[in-house]
Design a protein around this nucleic acid. Structure first.
Lengths: 196, 196, 196, 196
DNA sequence: GATGAATGAGGGTTCATTCAT
DNA sequence: GATGAATGAACCCTCATTCAT
């Protein structure tokens, strides 16, 4: 009675779930609405997801893999680490610029840790992993004198906060790419570049 | 909107509302729970607030005035604008470090503009006002060569995003003041100081 | 804590009660509304009436005395009983034509005997008393050959039904006096006059 | 308005609604009670009717069709119109004698036009249709000299009022058929027969 | 006597979940 | 597997009644 991982219907329901949860939050979203958006019948939702919470968790966790792959695939330091950092920031911001809906889901969960403790824990790991992923590049940059001498973990945490904050505060700006260019430049500042 | 009764009971209910809405969100929060937290009976909540939504709006808007006063009271530029900026950042971050609960309410609303359109509009003004408030200081800093030459509006928006992002991403860190010191230093970087 | 029979305030509340109960029925009427209509404060209603039901009963019963006096004050038979009947009908219909609101209350109660058993019993007496009051006149009319030979009780009951029915069915016609003239003529037919 | 599901359950709920509304009125009737009477669970009522008001409207309007068919199916005038009228009266009164409950619903609505304006309008048409239906017969009767020369509309309205009034005033007499015979004879008088 | 805030029982309505078809 | 009717717990809200001021 659950978790048929592969199925075209399951996927449609999941996408409908992400869409609806992101816009309306958990409680306001009804199974009926999700079913309608997914183009399946009411009961079918329960064929693929045990219950509402299960669907919500899947809506949060399954797309997370892609986010992780974008955020954690950071190049090995070369001779121009500052340049690499700039490129990484660009790539990641451009990705987030497109993830309007899903990003909202993440923020919705992060903002309510008591309500979604399991999901929160999962997401809370994120900053730690990002620290690991970014550290070599930052250290190399500092070594080379291209970056200011600050604790790499702090820079990483600040950078993640900044991404979240931009996504939250200027949520509708999905289209205006110039704005994103601006934010990219500002994000770079957080790394304390000698040559901003 | 709401009855403008000043009453100790009304205040207790409002505080209970902020507390509960911030932790559980709108739908999950029950009037029963708010009443219990406030130490009043169920029906008394409706003596002071027309309905649940009214209480929610009040919970969002009424404390907003204090936030505004902290965020918009920015000193006139002196001969050391960079120093003034640093002090302003410190003051504002320290304020937000204490506003755990209420800050979450704000993020909750900002993250769901379709669901709370009126409140969202109100909050959306914030970034514009902050731009006005910060611009003179930034311009003076740039004039003096203490800050990098970037569009003041972009700096202001980035700074606001960063505050929100920190509050969202590292939500439980209310106590650890060292962390906040770190974030304050990072925030300063967003202004592109020559002397970071 | 109850039944101060005389008081100008009590009277105002009672009139407001009749008015509101008649238009909206029992449940929909709120004490708040009655108080407002009466121009007194909320709690004052309970100074003069023990509870809502008490006010309702008073609203039904107290004006009943006037109705009784109009309906039961029927002249002693003279030599022209048919003429007397006609005059009586006229007088009574003209009275009811004005009693829009109160008549509706009576019908409201009569129509729900299980819900208002005490009041219903009181009103149910009405037909019996009217029988007594009308009988001498009808008998005399039949004796004189002016009326058809039918059981006086049946005529009386039919007449009362007709009044009620007209008041119920053509409820808004309070003003159009011509309509009432028509109904008066028709009512007279129920007595089976030789000379209609 | 309502879902047009044909279903045995829907019918049971509707009958329970008519029954309960007729006895207790709108506000006093609870969905819980209706559900119990209908032998279904609470929530099932809302499967077939959107809300309480919807159920009430259906309870008033759906049985109305049968009433209409009885009240408006009046024979074409033959050579003995007075006889036809008498038969029509008999048929209609016998029908209403059985409709204890439903007739009370109609009176409940008619008596509160402000509260149920839509339903009231619908029912208010009734007298006009009855006028149309009765006129040919009455005119023929007057032509033949079998009936008194009175405006047919007035006779029709009086007749309808009388039915309503009898139903209202002597509401419990469903069984005693003799009483109804009496009222039938009296109703006939309203048509002003030469041969009563 | 007059007032209106405080109380909480009770009602309509929603909706996740179950399950017979 | 797919469907959607059936169920009832839980919520918001109303309002008669009480009672301190």
């Amino acid at each position: 009675m659950a978790m048929q991982k592969s199925s075209e219907k399951r996927e449609r329901i999941l996408q409908a779930g992400i869409q609806t949860f992101a816009v309306n939050g958990y409680s306001t979203t009804t199974i009926k609405e999700v079913a309608k958006t997914a183009g399946v019948s009411y009961g079918t939702v329960f064929t693929y997801f045990e219950n509402k919470e299960d669907l919500f968790k899947a809506s949060v966790l399954e797309p997370l893999e892609e986010v992780k792959s974008v955020m954690f695939s950071i190049p090995h330091p070369s001779e121009h680490p500052a340049e690499q950092i700039k490129e990484t920031i660009e790539r990641q911001f451009r990705f987030f610029a497109q993830q309007t809906t899903y990003a909202r889901m993440l923020q919705y969960v992060i903002g309510q840790p008591e309500r979604f403790p399991d999901l929160f824990k999962e997401l809370d790991q994120f900053s730690l992993h990002l620290r690991e992923a970014l550290r070599p590049l930052i250290l190399k940059g500092q070594e080379k004198g291209e970056l200011i001498q600050l604790e790499p973990n702090d820079i990483s945490d600040s950078y993640l906060s900044f991404i979240n904050g931009v996504r939250l505060t200027f949520i509708d700006s999905a289209e205006e790419m110039e704005r994103w260019d601006t934010f990219i430049r500002q994000a770079y500042l957080l790394f304390g570049p000698s040559n901003p």
